[in-house]
Design a protein around this nucleic acid. Structure first.
Length: 784
DNA sequence: GAGTTTGAAACT
DNA sequence: CAGTTTCAAACTC
């Protein structure tokens, strides 16, 4: 039973906790459902996860698991294995301690009696999902909070892998936007390395988001091990895509992850527009190589946070590790599917936020794949492909509601859901069982764990009942809830489990902080466990008007640190707070603008919103025609600065004061000579700075080049001779030699051509002597 | 770096 | 809504 902090519950918006709509979709899973019989729900309004397998047929349903504790998660795959290994079960445990019992229960609940509880599953890693070839099921189970990873008694020796030749696992999720996600295990895929079978071909795990196009798009990031897409898969994909409803050309990502021999993996995130992979350099296709080892689990999660811009996309990837070396684990990035699904982004309509329809109702209880646009915020991050993810979109941010899979019953599920299958030939099993339990941040669980110093305590528990597994049980007591207006919450805010509250509770987490925490998490994990992660999948993708996605590292986004001393950074005095960001690397004192004080922070946000519903809305509204029409939403009230100092918000924003302003003695207007003078000065200063910077860069380059080219010719040691040997005296001596040579040739009556040649030869001799002397001097210096 | 100025935010 | 206070950034020395 999960315990929710009443204090946090009070702060939870109703929208977040609304589960009624989801409950209706909650259906048990019929494990006996044959893959070839189960139709594939294609309704885009419903979350559909389809897993198809090739040789042997491997059909599965995925219910992407929520992140980390408190994020009930369950990923279920129904496997039709030709090899029918009696006990071939594979358990992928999530990075966050997933109890063995939980996985077992999940398996039992999904597979019926075919898998005895606690017996059939082989735990390869702390719980992500399990594959049971015997009962034709693959259970991807990421249980909600796992308080303890260890103690599960999982033995690597018992772990088994699926070794069917040519086996492929295709997981396709189709959502509202018609974006299938394929999880593929091609070529004798081995989903586990725990067996230590060195001869087994490198298992590959592939997650692909396909755009609206009918053809399967290339997958990147699988060097040396291309993931073949069989005709069947292609057909399935085509079928899926034909069923897609989305007419718009969505911007999507293709994420591929290849796990090679459980040692390395690469993840590539490529923005895709209308199913087309954008190879443009500016698209910042990100490839991440992540090391994995047998005793480490790689858990990747991708979070999207729109941040302050309607079209911003924050991608967070966290690699974590199971320190318990006694467990041979195979990090199967179950969350990759989740992350990728979240990552799928629709191209928002280029509409000014001011034009948008304001919907104060904020979050809505929607079908898992339904998105909500509010406050004119046109950015859409469709979670359509995510069966258990819902989007709650605010004016400047997007919430994602993760739907917890309970006991997925394909039959019931199909009945309950609008999904339909068009992949009969692919023999897919579709499980569309999702129950919204809570809105959770897209932030990685590890990140959240890292963020929250208060570790999950015993209050967080995973439901042991198979039917209610991973559900979050909310307190029966009716608690007053704050209802933060989603349209007015700080931009980029996502909801995160409150620290110390386990699976429940929410913290308003600025999107940027997700990446901030991500960075720190990576560092922490790497340093603590020796797990080296070259880079994390984190980027902020911005969706400009032209629809192209440009990924920028959030770390590069400048932000001035605040210096608050009395406001605790919980008032709009604090720029960080006002911008919806956590304080990070600030100089503030007694800062409460962090996750450790998310309760206070939520209250402060609520207070601000009560005082001013638009408190977190940008002050500088975008005009219809660009910056020329930008103006302060409220106008300034300057009295003494003439609106020509940065005290003035208009001037600071480099915009003119408008009629809205109540300033006195304003000089910040178009024809103002003072303003023009200041502008010219500012421009000139800027030019000077740029020139200086360019000059310094050029000089540095030249010096570096010079140092490089001064490599001695005659030095045997290969060291670089100091160019300082070419002193003034040396130059003069050289010139004297050359002049002397010239005189000699002139006196001897040599032709001019020959004279020039002799002079040049003399010059060469001089250089050789200089180099030789320099080398000797250097050698002498070293010897002494 | 300390002190002052300034105007937005917060408060009454 | 207006006046006052608080606050932190901008600015000056």
């Amino acid at each position: 039973m999960d315990v929710v902090s009443p204090e946090l519950i009070n702060l939870l918006p109703d929208e977040i906790m609304d589960t009624e709509a989801i409950i209706a979709e909650e259906v048990p899973v019929s494990a006996a459902q044959p893959c070839d019989v189960a139709p594939v729900p294609m309704e885009t309004d419903a979350p559909v996860t389809t897993v198809t397998a090739q040789n042997p047929q491997l059909c599965a349903t995925l219910t992407p698991s929520p992140l980390r504790s408190g994020l009930p998660s369950q990923l279920t795959l129904v496997v039709s294995s030709a090899s029918s290994s009696p006990s071939s079960t594979l358990a992928f445990k999530p990075m966050f301690a997933t109890s063995t019992a939980t996985s077992t229960r999940t398996t039992a609940s999904l597979a019926g009696a075919s898998v005895p509880a606690g017996g059939g599953l082989q735990k390869l890693s702390p719980g992500s999902f399990a594959i049971s070839a015997a009962n034709h099921q693959i259970i991807l189970n990421k249980v909600a909070e796992a308080t303890k990873t260890s103690g599960m008694g999982v033995s690597a020796s018992t772990a088994q892998v699926i070794k069917q030749d040519g086996q492929k696992l295709l997981v396709t999720t189709i959502g509202k936007s018609g974006q299938p996600i394929m999880l593929q295990l091609p070529q004798k895929s081995v989903l586990g390395q725990a067996s230590g079978d060195g001869k087994s071909p490198a298992p590959q795990y592939k997650v692909v988001t396909i755009g609206g196009r009918t053809e399967l798009k290339p997958v990147m990031g699988s060097p040396g091990s291309p993931l073949p897409v069989s005709a069947l898969q292609a057909q399935q994909l085509k079928t899926l895509q034909k069923a897609q409803v989305s007419s718009a050309a969505p911007i999507k990502y293709i994420i591929t992850k290849t796990v090679s021999k459980g040692l390395t993996s690469q993840t590539t995130v490529s923005p895709v527009i209308a199913g087309r992979v954008l190879n443009s350099p500016v698209m910042s296709t990100k490839t991440i190589s992540i090391s994995e080892s047998l005793n480490t689990s790689l858990h990747k999660k991708i979070a999207i946070s729109p941040l302050k811009s309607p079209s911003k996309l924050t991608v967070v990837s966290v690699a974590s590790q199971t320190p318990n070396a006694t467990q041979k684990t195979m990090g199967v990035p179950v969350n990759m599917a989740l992350g990728q699904q979240i990552l799928t982004v629709h191209q928002p309509a280029a509409v000014s936020p001011s034009k948008g329809v304001s919907n104060q109702s904020a979050a809505q209880s929607l079908k898992p794949v339904q998105t909500v646009t509010m406050g004119g915020f046109k950015t859409i991050i469709p979670l359509a492909t995510q069966p258990n993810v819902q989007q709650i979109q605010g004016s400047r941010f997007t919430y994602v509601r993760l739907v917890t899979s309970t006991t997925a019953n394909p039959t019931t599920l199909q009945a309950g859901g609008p999904t339909t299958s068009t992949m009969q030939t692919a023999k897919p099993m579709v499980v569309n069982a999702g129950t919204v339990r809570m809105s959770v941040p897209i932030a990685p669980a590890q990140t959240m764990k890292q963020m929250v110093p208060k570790s999950i305590t015993t209050t967080t528990q995973v439901m042991t009942n198979a039917q209610t597994q991973q559900r979050l049980i909310m307190p029966a007591t009716s608690l007053p809830q704050i209802q933060p207006n989603f349209t007015n919450l700080p931009p980029g805010t996502v909801l995160a489990p409150a620290p110390g509250t386990g699976n429940v509770g929410y913290a308003v987490v600025p999107a940027q902080y997700v990446t901030q925490l991500q960075q720190s998490s990576l560092v922490t994990m790497a340093s603590s466990s020796g797990f080296h992660t070259p880079t994390g999948v984190q980027a902020q993708a911005r969706l400009p008007v032209n629809g192209l996605v440009t990924a920028t590292d959030s770390s590069t986004r400048p932000r001035k640190p605040c210096n608050c001393t009395k406001s605790q950074c919980l008032k709009l005095y604090c720029d960080c707070f006002a911008n919806g960001e956590f304080c990070n690397n600030c100089n503030c004192n007694n800062c409460f603008n962090n996750l450790e004080h998310e309760t206070e922070r939520l209250k402060a946000i609520k207070t601000c919103l009560d005082r001013n519903p638009g408190a977190f809305k940008p002050k500088i509204g975008k005009g219809k025609q660009g910056e020329s029409d930008r103006r302060h939403s409220k106008g300034c009230n300057c009295k003494r600065s003439g609106c020509l100092k940065n005290y003035c918000e208009c001037y600071e924003a480099k915009i003119m004061c408008s009629s809205i302003c109540k300033c006195v003695g304003c000089k910040n207007f178009e024809e103002s000579p003072e303003r023009k003078t200041l502008m010219h000065l500012a421009d000139a200063a800027e030019v000077r700075v740029q020139q200086q910077t360019a000059a310094k860069t050029k000089l540095s380059s030249q010096i570096s080049d010079l140092l490089t080219r001064t490599t001695p010719i005659s030095t045997s040691g290969g060291g670089r001779l100091p160019y300082t040997f070419v002193t003034k005296e040396v130059v003069e001596a050289t010139c004297e030699c050359l002049l002397d040579q010239a005189r000699q040739t002139e006196l001897s009556g040599q032709p001019q051509a020959l004279a020039e040649r002799l002079i040049l030869e003399e010059f060469g001799h001089c250089l050789m002597r200089i180099i030789s002397s320099a080398g000797k001097a250097k050698s002498d210096c070293i010897n002494c």
